[in-house]
Computed example of a mutant assay.
Amino acid sequence: MTPGGAPGSVRPVVSFGEPEEFDERPRARGPRVRPRIAAAAACFVLGLGLIGGAVTGSWLVGEPGETGARDSFAAAGGLWHSVPVDQLFPPTVQGQGAGPGGADRTWTRIAVAPDSGCADAFDPLLRKALAPVGCRRLLRATYTDATQSYVTTVGLLFAKGDAAAMSALGRRFADEGLADRTDLMPRPYAAQDTPAAGFGPGQRASWTVSVLTDAPVVVYAVSGWADGRTVDDPQSAGKAMASGATTAPAQAGLGHEAKGLADRVERGLRKTVSSPTEKPS
């Protein structure tokens, strides 16, 4: 094949051998034609093989925008009503290496909020920031650590936005550092007769917000002390977990509480989407 040519195109053959003597007798052309046909056929088959391999590779990889990715995105958007709460928010969550210095963590669920909309679940500025993707449903649960010293609310906001809208929101959160702004903290879910009964807006110590781009979901978590103390200097989980952080939330490991629990709930969500054995409740 010539570079850029179509399958079957062949370079002209140029010979610098001794000239043949003139002979009027007819000559058989078959032996000269057949090798060329064979070469063209081989190039054609090779071309088909390369194209087929490329197509097969794209199926296996599942590039964004293809049918499989779209199906997974759509499936994730319906999990709020098709998956048991214990699967989305397990009664106990193990956080191996999730604490400061790689210490293990164990969280126990102490309350689950009724599934609802987002009208009263966020401060006004955060609600405005999330508005471009809408709110289909909000699920929340509150956990405490093994010592019942800390409480953490983790939430799953199931959005109405499509993949493009989620990607745009994710870029905005990353580019503008919205996840670190103290005026964009999520609200906790305080349940009566639990260690989180006094976990209100003033008790928020650390938080994390993650906008997924391969699912219409925003995952967040907010942590605080179980004794209901007010926090004057809340700090995002990203900053509280940074080396050398000296704020009270950082020293107590509350950034690790929020980030560690949110990450594991997100992993469970992804596993549920990809599981072929998922069964509706």
Rank of each mutant, 00 (worst) to 15 (best):
A74P: 00
W225C: 01
S15C: 03
E257P: 12
G134A: 13
T106A: 06
P19D: 10
T230H: 10
A226Y: 05
A39I: 02
A69M: 03
A131I: 12
D104H: 06
S236K: 08
T56P: 03
Q203A: 05
T152W: 02
F16W: 08
L50S: 06
T247P: 03
D233Q: 14
A205G: 08
T194P: 08
R137H: 14
L48A: 07
T144N: 14
A240H: 10
A164C: 00
A54L: 10
P132T: 05
T272Q: 06
G68K: 02
G238I: 11
F158L: 11
P35M: 03
E257T: 05
P7Q: 14
T208E: 15
A262W: 09
A245C: 10
G244M: 07
G101Y: 02
W59S: 04
A76D: 00
A74W: 03
G202L: 07
D175A: 11
V222K: 08
G161S: 12
G224M: 02
R127E: 15
M1E: 11
S116T: 15
T272Y: 04
L79K: 01
R204Q: 14
A174S: 13
A215P: 05
A76I: 07
K128G: 11
P249S: 05
D193V: 06
E176N: 05
Y143L: 03
P64L: 01
V133R: 07
E20G: 10
L157D: 13
A74T: 04
P132H: 06
K239L: 13
P114N: 15
I51Y: 07
G49T: 07
R270P: 03
V10D: 12
Y189K: 01
V231Q: 15
S167Q: 11
E24N: 08
Q251E: 12
E266P: 00
A242L: 07
A196L: 04
V33M: 05
V85G: 11
G177M: 03
A113I: 01
A221C: 07
G78T: 08
G65Q: 01
V154F: 03
G53Q: 04
L48E: 08
V112D: 13
A215K: 01
G134Y: 05
A237V: 01
T2K: 08
T194A: 10
A190W: 11
A69F: 00
L50R: 04
A168W: 04
L169N: 12
A250W: 02
S9C: 08
A179G: 15
G177H: 04
R127P: 14
K128V: 06
D23I: 00
R34K: 09
L169D: 15
V218S: 06
Y150Q: 15
L60N: 05
T247D: 08
A221V: 01
R204V: 06
G17V: 08
D175W: 00
A6N: 01
K279M: 09
G62F: 00
M241F: 07
L139H: 09
R32Y: 13
P186S: 11
A226I: 03
P26A: 04
P186V: 02
P100E: 09
V13I: 14
F158T: 10
R34E: 15
V219F: 09
E20Y: 02
S149N: 12
V218E: 13
P201H: 07
